[in-house]
Structures are given as structure tokens and as C-alpha cells.
Write a protein that binds this DNA or RNA. Sequence first.
DNA 1: TCTCTAAATGCAACTCGTTTGCATCTATTT
DNA 2: AAATAGATGCAAACGAGTTGCATTTAGAGA
Lengths: 163, 163
Amino acid sequence: MTSPGEQAACGEILHRHGLKNTPARRQVLRLLREGGVLTADDIGERLRDEGRTPDPSTLYRILDLFTARGLAERHYLPDLRKYGFSLKAAGHRHRLICVRCRRVVEIDRCPLEAFEKELRETTRFAITGHNLEWYGLCPDCQAAEARRAESPPDKSGPDGKAQ
Amino acid sequence: MTSPGEQAACGEILHRHGLKNTPARRQVLRLLREGGVLTADDIGERLRDEGRTPDPSTLYRILDLFTARGLAERHYLPDLRKYGFSLKAAGHRHRLICVRCRRVVEIDRCPLEAFEKELRETTRFAITGHNLEWYGLCPDCQAAEARRAESPPDKSGPDGKAQ
DNA sequence: TCTCTAAATGCAACTCGTTTGCATCTATTT
DNA sequence: AAATAGATGCAAACGAGTTGCATTTAGAGA
């Protein structure tokens, strides 16, 4: 799963960002590079599956560091009540997230620029940023949802998919 | 501060929503009616200033109830890492929030409808909702900010700004 | 008006994501 | 290879929010 090439690539990226090249950091970076949005917990779980036993505090420290250095970005996932982290890719400012399987579609066009300019003018606010995410069900999960429609009535509410 | 008229109005609103008219609920509703976005903590603090000693669990229960009944709505405030509550006003789906003084400008027009339709078609997602808020400094806070520009450098770091 | 009961409240203990202090270990520099 | 800045693991703490339970109370009914 972890090719030597990938390992080297991660090490190199860390160096380029002036960060020590440690095993934990390489692993976290590698997982993030697979794409998508991961919570600290997701990362811990995946590493545990690989036989590693990372401490949550270490993961948070690494993720905070990546975020501070502009390597990753963090955004709150209201459905899960925790933070998700993803590699920061220029131009990808917004996401469409499947609330079930967490699949992510990157939206590289921001439909708000014109509107925001107008807002700036009408309100005289110095707008520092905005927060925009879409939530929904991806096609696969819609199918799965339909299939389970007749099955056991679920108690946990339809939000489902905590992890 | 709390006019009898206001009290009565709150009681009446509670009744209209099929909710018991208790002192705690009237107080919470009254504060929400003053406008803006309040955290459970904000509400507790204000009530404490008035000599009341509300229990946090009660406040949360009331706010959850208001939210469930469609009287209020809840949204996460990334800067504060907690939930804010506000009265739900039809048509007011988005907000521009001053990160300093918490002043709120309601945005009654959603610039995303057309874009979202397009998104639905291109991704085949069943979009269930979106999350959109703007953050910035209101004119007053910009002035205050400029004034304190030379004053003590702040320790808390302006990193902030989720997006 | 008084009584009854479902529901609201207060309290304390708890959950869980995240953070912090500290001792130990390790990647990088010399 | 030795030195050292800083990375890690561990355990304890933090804070927003939640829950169980005993007590109180709003509102319905007699």
C-alpha cells in the first residue's frame, strides 16, 4: 500500500515545507494525499489498521502544523461535530460532501465572488472570508438508501454515518 | 429592561408554538428577540447579569426545543467553536457576521440557487443543503481596529478565519 | 379554586473532541 | 558520533454539550 516512491515523495514535501521528516508526519501526509476530507479520528483509525498506534495528540499537532504551514486546511464538519482536514489545493475552495460515505467533490468555481463584492459595497463590512459547503447524498448512497428503504426502521435517525 | 408587554409577547409566542410558558423559556426567547446570534453561554451570562441563575442544561434543552419547533435555528460559529442560536425568520437563510462584535446582517437573497441546480445536474448528488456564512468586520469594528493598530500586539493570533 | 400529572428544571456526573504539560526520544546539525 | 531543537507518547485537563434522576411547576381538569 505504501510504496517507497510515495514515502519519498512525502518526505520531500515535508522538507520543502521546512518540516522534519518523521514517520508520523509521512503517514499523515500520505493519507491526506489520497484525497478527501479526513478527521483526526479517521487518520488514527487507518493507521491503526496498518499496525501503527498514533497518539491523538500527535495527530492533532501534526494536522495543526500542516494547517499553519498552509499544507492542509481544516474545516468543521457540522454533521460529525469535528474537524476535517484535507490537503490544500489552490483553486479548490469549496466542496460537495456526501453525508453518508463522505465522498467529496471539489468545486473549483466559487459562485460568490460577484455577490460578495456587492455585499461589501452595500454593507461596508470588511469581509474576511466565507464558509460554503454543500451536503447531500452521492449517487451510490442514494441507491443504497433506496434499497434499504423497506429494511429495519432505523432508530438512530437518518443522519447516520457517524463513522 | 423587561417590559411587561415583551413578557406577554414571549408568552404568547410560546403558546402559539405549543410550548409551555415558563420563566426560563420566556427569558431565552426575549433575548433571542433582541436579534443577533447568541450562544448558550451568551444567554447564560446575560441572564446572570439580571440576577437569574439558569443551568446550562436547561438552556441547551430550551434552545434545542426552539430549534426543533422551528422557532429558532442553530449554526456553528467556527471562530468561537460553539453553536449560535437566533430566531428563525423566513427568507433569512444566510448571514454576514462581524467576527468582533458579532453584529449580524441578514442576507435575504441566496446567490446559490442557480449554481446549486447546475451542481445537482453535473454531480448527480441529491443535495440536501448548504452552509453559507460570511465573516468580516463591520464598519465600527474596522474603525476600532484601525484605532488600536498601534496598541498592544495581540497574543491570540489572528489565524482564525476558517476559510 | 384545588388537584393532578406530564413535563420542565436544577444538579451532578458524564461524553467526546481537542489541548496541554512533561518526560522521553529522534531527526537533523555540528 | 555527539549535541540539541523539537517531535512524540502519555496522562491529565478542558470545554461545549448531553444525560439520568429527583424535584418543582405550568396548565388541564374537576
